[in-house]
Simulated assay, not measured.
Amino acid sequence: MKAFVMESGEWKIKDIEEPKVKSGEVLVSLKAAGINRRDLGLIKRYGKNPEALIVGSDGAGVVEAVGEDVVDFAYGDEVIINPALRWYKNSEAPPAEFDILGMPDHGTFAEKIAISVEQLEKKPAHMSWEEAGSLALPALTGYRALFTKGRLKKGETLFIPGAGSGVATFLIQFAKNCGARVIVTSRSEEKREYAKKIGADVAIPTDSDWVKELEGETIDLVIDSVGEATFNRSLDVLKKGGRIVIFGATTDDIVDFNLRKFFYGQYQLFGSTMGSREELRNMLKHMEAHNVRPIVDKTFSLDRAQDAFDHLASGNQFGKVVLRIN
């Protein structure tokens, strides 16, 4: 089968052996797979390893074969992949055995994947393949950050630095569904307008004076994935006693901030990553009830996976970049 792999420090399209299902596994013929920022950085972590590894965390497709002891899924079922491996019940932090699909396990940027039946969910009927294939990782990440960790409530105001990421597009929609006010930033006027079209109440330039722009606003919750470039600016606009959730660091992992200012303001800081299967299933119910659909920016064929990676790396996308496979 055809796959997009890391091998000897390079990305490449390669023909590799089709996986075979073991007991408790299902073989899925993949229709679409979403690219995440996590995927862009994996080659640095994988290094010069000569063994080809299929990357990719998100995907959707059709069950082609089932192994022994599989009872909940059958040939022909339309499914999505849950990339949060071996995390089933909601908990304060993931269990020790938790991992994210796509390294060290083979991922979804291939024509087929063999995976534990525990990692499958029914494809949402109201979504296209491209939408369903780009759903799980960013939507689950946003759902946990917003509701489990951030505890967002009706009438509160959410602030999101950066409006164009896949997670941000879900955050905007989820927050509006629960009756919150949403404020975002972006350097791009086009992205600011798009964010308002999908529900943001206010969209301000990233390089503006946030304190001045948001005068009169009460920010209850900040969800930030940028890191050093925005962390202290976010604290400056967060209300005293407010909550800030961090689920990523696209600029720098290390942040300096004033501890005295932090504890006098009695701010609450939470880390978050991905989520449990329990949260994923609750998220899917939420999406069905509110008819939420992923925002797909652009699609590429599997043969053009490198072009898709380059497009995501450019930062010009609004929403998800997706690979069409079978």
Rank of each mutant, 00 (worst) to 15 (best):
S234N: 06
I198W: 04
V211R: 13
S225Q: 13
E213A: 14
V202K: 14
A203L: 05
D220V: 04
L221T: 04
V226K: 00
D220F: 00
G227I: 03
V184K: 03
I198K: 04
T230L: 07
K196G: 09
E193P: 03
V222I: 14
K197W: 05
S234V: 06
W210K: 07
P205K: 11
E217H: 11
I223Y: 02
S186K: 02
L221Q: 05
G216C: 05
S234G: 12
T230Y: 03
A200L: 05
T185A: 01
D207F: 12
E213N: 09
W210C: 09
T185W: 00
V222L: 09
S208G: 10
R233H: 10
T185M: 02
V184G: 00
V226D: 03
K196Q: 14
Y194V: 13
E213G: 01
R192S: 11
A203H: 01
L221M: 06
R187Q: 10
T206M: 11
D209F: 03
T218Y: 06
S234F: 01
D224S: 02
G216K: 09
E228L: 11
L214M: 14
S234D: 15
D224T: 03
E228Y: 10
I204A: 08
L221S: 04
A229E: 13
I223R: 03
S208H: 08
I219Y: 05
S208F: 03
G199H: 07
K196E: 10
